[in-house]
Design a protein around this nucleic acid. Structure first.
Length: 571
RNA sequence: GCACACGUGGCCUAGCUUGGAUAUGGCAGCAGCCUCCUAAGCUGCAAGUCGGGGGUUCGAAUCCCCCCGUGUGCGCCA
């Protein structure tokens, strides 16, 4: 239920009629002017060519042809635009009614419940998740929430890489490196305790040929399907994964299911992919290794061949990824992958190969740029990383300091709870507010920003609304939405009315960055209202204003929830 | 070398898909606002060659071409 829809429809019909009378039966856009000069605007520029008149004149003519409307209070022409101002009280009624009726599901669109499989995170289980990688689960989980808010049936999935050199090396390290050769680690989180073995094994590989030989042998046994080695590797991967899952949970990211890469070797599906690709006319081989020549498909670079087997006939990562995607196709209507920008070529190759396998579908990808540190890029191997766990801890500590500054009346436990909500929220918010494809340089002061365009700003507005309601006591009685007539009230209502459009854009077009922007706008509009319009202390309109506070609280909570942030009732 | 992405006030960022009205916010800076629903707030000021140059168009931050800078990729790795 979109409260703006009837208004948009009336504007559309009125403009179409007017244009028809002028002899221009053309299609046109209905915009929301960025300048805030009107509620809706129809640019008359497209008519100019057909009618051979200047747009400002056409806009004047059209404005004169539009009769008084039911939902629109004012129609006027300005600089080639046909502008519409909506009827305030009708808009208030439509908006507040929609919110009170739908509550937590306000924003939902009406679409059939399509099944969406959204793969995100999927980081190698060789170390704790660091803030560079953390962009992935935060984008993925937020998109999943936006799509659910819009009405999709979303399942999130983590593809666990338990195959290959990296995990084998980690496993070798755990078995062969004595504890005293590895730096001491604070805390008892397993991923942090284990990663030092991975780093040490990496260093030893570089300098010691014997180590390289041993790891190589282990890898060979693994590829030959040695049950013992495969079991061990899977076990270490699982240990690491549990640590990663715990970290994700701390930023409120919950993954619905896990698919293990080794599965596609065991069940033979990766092999079936190989057999089928071999039949392709684009397939050739070099010393027994099979590849597809992808130059005709627009792949550029030093190497345009796409290998899908080794010389010994074993499968490669990408081959298994194809088997994985064929499996995904059976399970969902829409597939979305959240991936680092380093995966772009791989995904292009995957899409072509899937086509050659006779598939007419391909996953939709959201690529994000890497997060770097001011001094350069992060690497688990080199140990130049900021771990997500450390960032969360620091964020919560800083938040706790801030809470202590402001509140002396709360119990220690309550303060910690609030600090958790704020710290974790700030981390998520500061990542989703920027477009995925923009490069991000990690700076502590940005990541822990608690003012202005930040999670606490939105959460604070929510806490203020709750506070008013707590003090008001009894629930809202009878009220007349039409009595909300001052600028602050009307501005706030106009923002509330836009929420369903924002969810549509975020959920359907995967443009999640519009949601934090909307949250900030809504919180700002409410803060102004809060500053200038007394609710409890004002004698007039108490009930209607309380209803507006309630509606705002509901929408702020929806925004926060959809961003994966908690909505504290006090701060 | 080739391909893809990014470049918007000191810093971060919206707008680019679908060209249109004075380019959106925030941080930092300056000046104000707490006897009044939590000042993580509010108000005002200052700050911009939209990387550079061409082109298309009545009109370009937005589309096209060239160039510059940054990032990423071009493994019988995952």
């Amino acid at each position: 239920m979109d409260p703006l829809e009837p208004f948009r429809e009336e504007v559309r019909i009125a403009a179409r009629k007017a244009f028809a009378q002028m002899g221009a039966d053309v299609s046109f856009e209905i915009e929301v002017p960025s300048t805030g000069i009107a509620d809706f605007a129809v640019p008359c520029f497209p008519l100019a060519k057909k009618l051979r008149k200047a747009p400002p004149i056409l806009a004047e003519e059209a404005a004169a042809l539009i009769p008084p409307l039911d939902l629109v209070s004012k129609v006027w022409a300005d600089k080639g635009y046909l502008n519409f101002q909506l009827n305030d009280s009708k808009l208030s009624v439509s908006t507040l009614e929609a919110i009170e009726a739908m509550k937590g599901s306000y924003g939902q669109g009406d679409l059939e419940r399509k099944k969406v499989l959204l793969e995100h995170t999927s980081v190698n289980p060789t170390g704790p998740i660091h803030v560079g990688r953390a962009r992935n689960p935060i984008i993925g989980d937020t998109l999943a929430r936006c799509m659910r808010a819009y009405g999709y049936d979303v399942t999130t999935e983590y593809y666990v890489n338990d195959v290959g050199k990296q995990v084998v090396m980690l496993t070798w390290g755990l078995e062969n490196i004595p504890a005293e050769d590895v730096p001491e680690v604070a805390g008892d989180k397993l991923d942090h305790r284990l990663v030092v073995y991975y780093q040490k094994a990496n260093k030893m590989m570089e300098s010691d040929p014997e180590v390289e030989k041993q790891v190589g042998q282990m890898l060979r046994r693994f590829e030959d399907g040695d049950e013992e080695v495969m079991g061990k590797v899977r076990k270490t991967a699982k240990l690491m994964l549990d640590g990663i899952i715990e970290s994700l949970l701390s930023i409120n990211v919950i993954i619905d299911q896990f698919t293990w890469e080794s599965q596609f070797i065991k069940d033979g599906s990766a092999h079936r992919v190989v057999e089928e690709l071999k039949r392709s006319e684009h397939c050739s081989e070099e010393k027994g290794a099979c590849y597809l020549e992808l130059k005709p498909f627009g792949i550029h670079g030093k190497e345009t061949r796409f290998f899908f087997t080794r010389a010994d006939g074993t499968t490669l990562y990408t081959t298994r990824d194809m088997a994985y995607h064929l499996d995904k196709f059976k399970r969902a209507d829409r597939m979305i992958n959240i991936l680092g920008e380093d995966q772009k070529l791989g995904q292009a190759q995957l899409a072509i190969a899937l086509k050659l396998l006779g598939q007419d579908r391909a996953p939709e990808c959201v690529f994000y740029s890497f997060v770097s540190l001011p001094e350069g890029r992060m690497s688990t191997r080199k140990g130049t990383v900021v771990y997500l766990d450390d960032l969360i801890e620091e964020a919560e500590e800083r938040a706790l300091e801030e809470v202590r500054k402001r509140r002396t009346d709360l119990s220690e436990e309550r303060m910690r709870e609030i600090a958790k909500a704020i710290g974790r929220g700030a981390v998520r918010y500061n990542i989703v507010r920027v477009q995925p494809e923009k490069p991000l340089v990690f700076k502590w002061e940005d990541a822990l920003n608690f003012e202005g365009n930040s999670a606490p700003f939105v959460q604070y507005a929510h806490a203020r609304a709750c506070s008013i309601q707590r003090k008001a006591g009894a629930s809202v009685g009878a009220y007349d939405p039409a009595s909300l007539t001052n600028d602050y009230e009307l501005r706030l209502i106009r923002v509330l009315a836009r929420y369903p459009s924002v969810i549509r854009e975020a959920g359907e077009k995967a443009r999640i960055q519009v949601l934090p922007a909307f949250g900030h706008e809504l919180a700002a509009a409410f803060n102004q209202f809060y500053t200038y319009v007394p609710v409890l202390k004002g004698e007039e309109n108490r009930e209607a204003r309380l209803a507006l506070v309630d509606a705002t609280r509901i929408v702020l909570a929806n925004v926060l929830n959809t961003l994966g942030l908690s909505a504290p009732e006090e701060m």
